[in-house]
Simulated assay, not measured.
Amino acid sequence: MTQMTAVDDGGPLREFFRLLILETGNVVSIFCGSEGKRVPAHNVLALQRNEYFFVGKCIALSITYGGPGPHFFSKSIARYLCGESITSPELEVPDYEIREKIEKVSKVQTTEQLRVLLDSEELSFRFEFGFSAPNRELNLEDKSDIVKSLSFHYLVYANRAELDQLMDGLQLMQQNSTLFRPLLQLTTIPLLTTSQMLKLFKPVWSELGSNKREEKESIILN
């Protein structure tokens, strides 16, 4: 019997990391938010067990060894993990009720409307994230700062310990943020269509009537 040595080009390892990353993004005790907008969930027990660190390490290892990136973090969280500044975080707050209240603040048109809304029971939670300025001192111009403060609190500051532990596992990402950020967030690159593919290349036909000509026509036209 002839013994043959199997050749491993990294396929099994990449498949392992693909399944690992797929399952990681769906662990509800670690992450929350809709698909493509995942945010670390606040979980003290997971923090104590260093689970966020291990998740970050798994992601870094997957990318290092040719596996996939997670592609499930929200854009703001991806930027934070890569050490970049965050813009427009209000649309990515995972809690629907909080996001709805933030949207109400963003839609007020007058100073009076803003003060009435902030003075209501619905927005009483604003004191929890440190925005304690008296209503009489607030004007419509302060609206964007209020929206940003609310959004940053629920998207980043409330989960700061989890994010920082995740960053510890992702260390190498911060060194190449431009390169790695697209691997962390959901991308919307359109698929290449058949017609676009045909436009990229010009076939070199064999002599008309030859067997090779028939083979090429079969491949290209079918």
Rank of each mutant, 00 (worst) to 15 (best):
M1K: 14
T2H: 15
Q3K: 11
V7D: 11
F16H: 07
F16S: 08
L19S: 14
I21G: 02
E23P: 00
E23N: 14
G25A: 00
V27L: 15
S34N: 11
S34K: 10
E35R: 12
V44C: 05
L45M: 15
L47R: 01
L47H: 02
Q48L: 03
N50W: 08
Y52V: 04
F53T: 06
G56N: 01
G56H: 05
A60G: 05
L61S: 11
Y65S: 06
G66N: 05
H71W: 13
H71Q: 13
H71R: 15
F73L: 08
L81Q: 01
C82K: 02
G83V: 08
T87K: 14
E90P: 02
L91I: 11
L91A: 14
R99Q: 10
I102C: 02
I102E: 03
I102F: 03
S106Y: 09
K107I: 10
Q109C: 08
T111M: 04
L114R: 00
L117E: 02
D119A: 15
E122Q: 08
E122G: 05
S124E: 14
E128Q: 11
G130T: 05
R136K: 15
R136L: 09
E137N: 13
K148I: 10
L150P: 01
Y154D: 00
N159V: 09
E162C: 10
L163T: 00
L163Y: 01
D164H: 09
Q165N: 06
M167N: 06
D168P: 03
G169R: 03
G169C: 04
Q174A: 12
S177D: 06
S177W: 04
T178S: 13
R181N: 05
T188F: 12
I189S: 06
W205L: 14
R213G: 07
E214T: 14
I220Y: 12
